[in-house]
Design a protein around this nucleic acid. Sequence first.
DNA 1: ATATTTTGTGTAAGGGCTTACAAATTAAAT
DNA 2: ATTTAATTTGTAAGCCCTTACACAAAATAT
Lengths: 338, 338
Amino acid sequence: MNIYDISKQAGVSIATVSRVLNGSPNVKPSTRRKVMDIIDQYGYTPNAFARGLGLDTMNSIGIICADSSDLYLSKAIYYIEGNLRKNGYNCILTCSGYNHDDKEAALAMMINRRVDAVILVGSNYIEADDETNRYIMNAAAQSPVFLLNASMDCPNVFCATCDDFKAMQDAALALIDSGITDILYLYNSHSYSGRRKLGGYRSACEIRKLDIAQDLMQFYEGSHEDIDGVCRFLCGLRAQGLVFRAVLASEDMLAAGAVKYAKKNGIAIPDELSVIGYNNSLLTTCSDPEITSVDNKLEALCFQLVRTCIGVLNGEKMPPKIIYSGELVHKGTTRLVH
Amino acid sequence: MNIYDISKQAGVSIATVSRVLNGSPNVKPSTRRKVMDIIDQYGYTPNAFARGLGLDTMNSIGIICADSSDLYLSKAIYYIEGNLRKNGYNCILTCSGYNHDDKEAALAMMINRRVDAVILVGSNYIEADDETNRYIMNAAAQSPVFLLNASMDCPNVFCATCDDFKAMQDAALALIDSGITDILYLYNSHSYSGRRKLGGYRSACEIRKLDIAQDLMQFYEGSHEDIDGVCRFLCGLRAQGLVFRAVLASEDMLAAGAVKYAKKNGIAIPDELSVIGYNNSLLTTCSDPEITSVDNKLEALCFQLVRTCIGVLNGEKMPPKIIYSGELVHKGTTRLVH
DNA sequence: ATATTTTGTGTAAGGGCTTACAAATTAAAT
DNA sequence: ATTTAATTTGTAAGCCCTTACACAAAATAT
């Protein structure tokens, strides 16, 4: 069943059927009705591929993320997909993993499929190195590219990011100003936002004239889900004699590991150990006590990113960068001076 | 830049270019090289829409889930997408929400886009009522449909499910057999698997000749992320005088709420209250003590579902149903007799 | 050296839609 | 009633591939 069949049944030309299908105003109401009746009767649906070929778009947008099951990224995907759908777009999702070549392949695949735009979800995607820049630029030459929680100066690349530097700086300052100086900064990503966060921590220490002991910045190499691994990792540090009275984590899951560590070792939270996480995810609520964490305004960022995307696709001039401020949400793992 | 341009540059016909592009064996090696050189030189990529039109497929598969940010569903998506990608398929993802019409619309959209198959992720999608059956059957008339954690007898519909009935029955029996009779069954979904789980609980009670007090089966209406809401809900039940010495939950998040409730009220786990969750997700590790939970073999199910899907698309005869057994993973919220 | 098979290549016909432009119909203006 | 303008419809030319079929070239058999 194709447009010719419908046109024959309705006694009109294919052009008229096409106009009806596309809601063109230049169709006599009676004709429209006649055609619609036939369409409904046969349950006809225009062939999306042919349509795509004619219009050079299938209204689909590529979403690439490293790992769609990640607590944080999955939320981003949810928000982005929902907003795009409201605007009439479909999403082609792919998980690139954290490997370089796979990321590039994912991007190339999207371009091949001729998506209208590509959204790179999660700063984990963007390693902020020249190699990455190169292939994102290549992609941007074909389709506009939108980055969530990353930043890049490149034509046809648009970003929505949380000011992680500032947010982490604030979190660190809050700890310092409540009298804690031995702050262990715990992170598990060298990604774009990972660097920004680390920078924020360092900057806070500088501002308050604290020495930044190298071993108070620890990189956790384990899986993104291995809370117990984090716990063991911290136990190890303690065994080595490292002293810290706060854990400032680049992700809630690391913070959850820190809480677990404290319990295991009979360390009182927040009296003997303060913990601050990042993302303010479900994990912060699940933990006991609940974890103080940075809300990085994910929903708003996703909303704005999609808004920008739609604008660009409609040919509007859009700002290349949107920046939101994070916010420290005080819960049970800190006792901060306000 | 299209296939004509390439053919002109390479001094061959478009048919030859097409053959090179599609890896046809009937091309002289020297010709292939000549064509490939031009293709590489211009970075040419065949138009996916035209290809789709010609082949009547773009190798894409629709994934529909209620909520891609759900801890459990997001994992399913991750596994499914990964497996499909390995087999050369792309995924079009959409979140239908829990509303009936939206689900139907999502399904219709996938069919319109002419996906090769549709995968419905999560039993939440399948309400096991006639209305749902109708539109899934409609869809199945166009493309094969694959259900994760749901079941349906319908041509062109294939399922991979965990035997939730049995798993929940086993969990309940384990509690009963360790001497606990006041088991509060807590659930938050009337979905296909939700019913199966409830059935398992009831069956266990019957087997052990326990009366099933109606108020020991409680439905939680709040959000799927509101752990505190669950906690309040249980506090409410307690205030009303309901006595229970175990919480058997249809989802880990509910179990996490139960743990929180116990702590808030100074109830010792597992001595005074046992808790069992379902899905064995990250939440079980995050909680203190860690939550005993049912592992429902999600990864294996996803693997098999995709395997079935690929088989069907290759024209192979595939089994319409795959059933795995769940497994109770003992952790800290129970002290069960083995 | 010729006939036969195998291999490689080209021509042309779709696949199903959109849309510019031409043509026909209808409405408004004179 | 006739001319002009506005509305509605149809024709045909793309969009860019794939592939059946025909034909040419090369390899093998006679």
